Simulated assay, not measured.
Amino acid sequence: MSNYTPNSDTRNTPDHYHVLGATLSITADAKTTDGEYLVLDMLVPPMFENGLHTHEQSEVFHVIEGEARLHVDGRDQTLGPGTSGYVPGGEVHGFANEGDEVCRVIAVMTPAGAEGFFREAGQPTDDRSLSEPIEPTEEMLQSLFATGDRYGFEFLGPLPERAE
C-alpha cells in the first residue's frame, strides 16, 4: 500500500522565465515534489551558452528538439533529439546551443532548490515564447553571479573551445 499523498498545490500551469535569452518553464519544483527534484522545460536560442559552473544538485539534460553541447569535467558530448546527458552534483559543467535552430531541453535537478535561483535571476513571462536575443551586460552578469551565490551556484567563465 502506498503512502503517497498528493501535494495540495494542484496547479497545472508552469511558471515561465526569460533568463539571459533562454526561456525556462518550471514544471515541477520543491513544493510539488517534496523537495526531491526540479524540472525545467527549456527553449534555448541559437548560439546560447550558460558558461562553466557548479552547483550541488545532480542534473540530467534530455533533448526534445535541436542539438546541444554538454560539457562535463573537460569533455564534450553532443546531445540530439531523444538523447540525455548526466552531470553529477558539484561537477564543473556547461551547456550550449551552438546551432542555428532553437533547442528544446528538459532538465531535471535533484534535490530541488535551484528553482529559487531561476525565479530570482529570470524575468517572469506569461508564455513559453523566446525573448528577443540579448547581449548580457557586465551588470546583468554580476547580478546573476550574486544571485547564484545565494543558491550555491559558482560561475567559472565561458565554455572552453571544443577539443577537435
Rank of each mutant, 00 (worst) to 15 (best):
G21T: 04
A22P: 01
A22Q: 09
A22M: 14
T23M: 04
L24I: 15
I26T: 08
T27Q: 09
T27S: 15
A28D: 12
A28V: 07
D29T: 07
A30G: 13
A30P: 01
A30M: 09
A30E: 09
K31C: 07
T32C: 08
T33C: 08
D34H: 11
D34A: 13
E36R: 15
Y37A: 05
Y37L: 13
V39N: 03
L40K: 01
L40M: 14
L40V: 12
M42Y: 00
L43G: 03
L43E: 04
V44F: 02
P45H: 07
P46C: 11
P46N: 12
M47T: 11
M47G: 07
M47K: 15
M47Y: 08
F48H: 01
F48T: 00
F48W: 15
F48I: 03
L52Y: 02
L52P: 00
L52S: 09
H53F: 08
H53D: 06
T54L: 08
E56F: 10
Q57A: 12
Q57R: 08
E59H: 13
V60D: 00
V60S: 04
H62K: 07
H62F: 14
H62S: 03
E65N: 11
L70V: 05
L70A: 01
H71S: 07
H71Y: 15
V72A: 05
V72H: 03
D73K: 14
G74K: 04
R75A: 13
D76N: 13
Q77T: 12
Q77P: 03
Q77N: 10
Q77H: 14
T78N: 07
T78R: 13
T78S: 12
L79R: 06
G80M: 09
P81W: 05
P81E: 10
G82S: 10
G82R: 07
G82H: 14
G82E: 09
T83A: 06
T83D: 04
T83L: 03
T83Q: 15
Y86E: 12
V87F: 04
V87A: 00
V87M: 02
P88E: 13
H93C: 07
F95I: 02
F95C: 00
F95E: 00
N97C: 08
N97L: 02
E98V: 10
D100G: 12
D100E: 15
D100A: 14
E101V: 14
E101Y: 12
V102T: 15
V102P: 04
R104T: 04
V105N: 02
I106K: 06
I106L: 15
A107K: 00
A107N: 13
A107S: 14
A107L: 10
M109T: 00
M109Y: 15
T110R: 05
T110G: 13
P111V: 10
A112T: 03
G113E: 06
E115M: 05
G116N: 11
G116V: 14
F117W: 03
F118P: 01
E120A: 13
E120G: 08
A121I: 02
A121L: 02
G122H: 01
Q123R: 13
